[in-house]
Write a protein that binds this DNA or RNA. Structure first.
Length: 231
DNA sequence: GCCAACGTTGGC
DNA sequence: GCCAACGTTGGC
């Protein structure tokens, strides 16, 4: 059931006894028109590069989330980038990952690293926007909640199996990058040995958290930023 | 440790 | 809604 589910970022929340996050719910925000005001203009690599100046900025990630409503044990697991934007501070915890490889990537994420927010299981799958890590891995509380769809009875409080991070909205993509487009490049690069030939989205089909700029994923971001394709 | 059965992911 | 891909489970 590796499947990102979020709700309010844990940090400063009052965490009541039976804290069912008020959010996470049906925020069927239909992309409010004014939303584009939040779009930042600089491209991600520019911002980070100037900031780190020489420091090595290797890691970008891809995080999948379902953009359309679907019930899992009676709970709607939808969480689109619009839902993230609607959260307080535009921040949410990324709960519900129940796959070891994906979890290990979550644990490798560092503060301020950026991730592409991918919409899965929907009409138009693809990359919708950019988010950043604002809290590094800590125990995913939903693994202990009996009525949570991602409850894991085998996980013990003194040795939690599953982790989550907090992410904050950064900006939308300048244009939505469809799965079809990504696949086209991936296919071409398989033939030519291009940078996206090993992109994990295709080689590790069901992995919900994946690196984009290291390992076998290829220099995804560099590829896009070095072509006429704007993101 | 093998592997068949089963469950989940996620595009189409 | 179908079903391919693939991770997990559990009998042996």
């Amino acid at each position: 059931m590796p499947r990102p589910r979020k709700r309010l970022a844990g940090s400063a929340e009052p965490a009541g006894p039976d804290n069912k996050g008020p959010a996470g719910k049906r925020t069927k925000t239909k992309n409010p028109v004014g939303a584009s005001a939040q779009v930042v203009n600089s491209s991600p690599q520019k911002t980070s590069a100037s900031k780190t100046c020489g420091k090595y900025l290797s890691s970008y990630w891809l995080m999948k989330s379902e953009a359309e409503s679907r019930l899992e044990k009676g709970v709607d697991v939808k969480f689109s980038i619009e839902d993230l934007k609607a959260q307080p501070k535009q921040t949410a915890c990324w709960d519900g990952v129940r796959n070891y490889q994906a979890r290990n990537f979550l644990r490798a994420m560092k503060l301020e690293q950026e991730a592409f927010f991918y919409h899965s299981n929907c009409k138009e799958p693809g990359i919708a926007g950019l988010v950043k890590i604002v809290k590094e891995a800590y125990p995913d509380h939903t693994q202990f909640e009996k009525n949570n769809p991602h409850y894991d009875p085998s996980s013990k409080e003194d040795n939690p199996k599953w982790s989550m991070v907090d992410v904050q909205f950064v900006r939308m993509m300048k244009r939505f990058i469809t799965l079809a487009e990504l696949k086209t490049h991936h296919q071409a690069h398989k033939a030519t040995g291009g940078p996206l030939k090993n992109m994990a989205l295709f080689s590790r089909q069901r992995l919900s958290i994946q690196p984009l700029t290291q390992g076998k994923s290829g220099p995804f971001l560099l590829y896009y930023s070095h072509t006429r394709m704007t993101m």
